[in-house]
Nucleic acid binder design. Sequence first.
DNA 1: TTTAATTCTAAGCAATCGCTTAGTTATTGT
DNA 2: ACAATAACTAAGCGATTGCTTAGAATTAAA
Lengths: 189, 189
Amino acid sequence: MARKKEYIEEEVIEKAMELFWRNGYEATSVRMLEKEMGINQFSIYSSFGNKKGVFLKSLACYRAKAKVELIDKLKNSSGGIQSIKEYFYDFINFSKDSTRTKKGCLITNTVNELGEKADTEIMSNIISFATNVKTLFIEKLESNKLKTPEMITKQANYLMVSLQGLSVASKMFDQKQLDDFIESTFENL
Amino acid sequence: MARKKEYIEEEVIEKAMELFWRNGYEATSVRMLEKEMGINQFSIYSSFGNKKGVFLKSLACYRAKAKVELIDKLKNSSGGIQSIKEYFYDFINFSKDSTRTKKGCLITNTVNELGEKADTEIMSNIISFATNVKTLFIEKLESNKLKTPEMITKQANYLMVSLQGLSVASKMFDQKQLDDFIESTFENL
DNA sequence: TTTAATTCTAAGCAATCGCTTAGTTATTGT
DNA sequence: ACAATAACTAAGCGATTGCTTAGAATTAAA
């Protein structure tokens, strides 16, 4: 009955996600999105409703990408501190774009940019992702049977904040300083 | 010969700084600045040139405020790990506004928002501040004569990234999680 | 082949962006 | 009192923001 879409939503969202990842939410305009996604504004709005809709789908895309390239590896690891340390090093590579510029973590970038005034849908998405990662850290820490639940909670909180620090610091510090950080971070565990 | 200014530049810049601190650079418009600063756009541009000029002065204002309320205390401390740990706790209080919302660190916020595409003047300002803090950490770590220079460099890098992590995480995590982080950070230094 | 449904292009909407400028008001030396 | 200087108000500049819409193009069922 009707005309067919000339694009695949999952494909164009990946382009949008890259743009938000590089530039942040506010600094990414709908004009930039239509160029990068390769579709007209009409198509953007008919597929995703509004700019926030594009961003929410981009967050989901980021989470899926992080799962495949980052989280699943940790999930399937033998566990323990060493596996989590590898996750930290993997994250730095994950955050690099084609020109080796570090974009940080999209989730961390968004918390830092929007903070408390973030839309509730965006915020719950962020909280949900952070909770997933933290739960995984806890699982992997539990492979050491000597640790009490209190120690594990404390160390998981510590790792979460460290990871956010790594995300911001990777935009500003060189690889040597980041390596120092990661090594020191895991000396404390 | 001529009319007098009806405002004091240092006073209105403090208001501007608060606004940039809460909202970030891009999300702070000149219209918002004129309301908060209580002066007309003409006055803003004649005093500070352009929006970037207001921001650069705001960065200087932030640095001065951080010096008085945060850095001088550490500078005058007895030294050692405990003094730096107090600096971390002090920073969290420093980052709270009147409604106890955490704004993070203006310098960290700016790196995270603008990243590589930050103006060179802004970036050198940021690097300079970070260098100051790191130098101070090194000084205070050196009060322990047992530490080798390599250990001190490594630990200073570690503390710098940790502090940035704390800045971002404070916008998202509760006080207990932040306390866990700080305690773990200093456990093995 | 007609017709109804959907997507496309491209122009345009009001609002806001950073910034400027014309004209008025205040302050000073002469 | 007058002239010179600078700071004020307020309107408006072109460009860009997120978003909408009129009309042409494409699809597939009837």
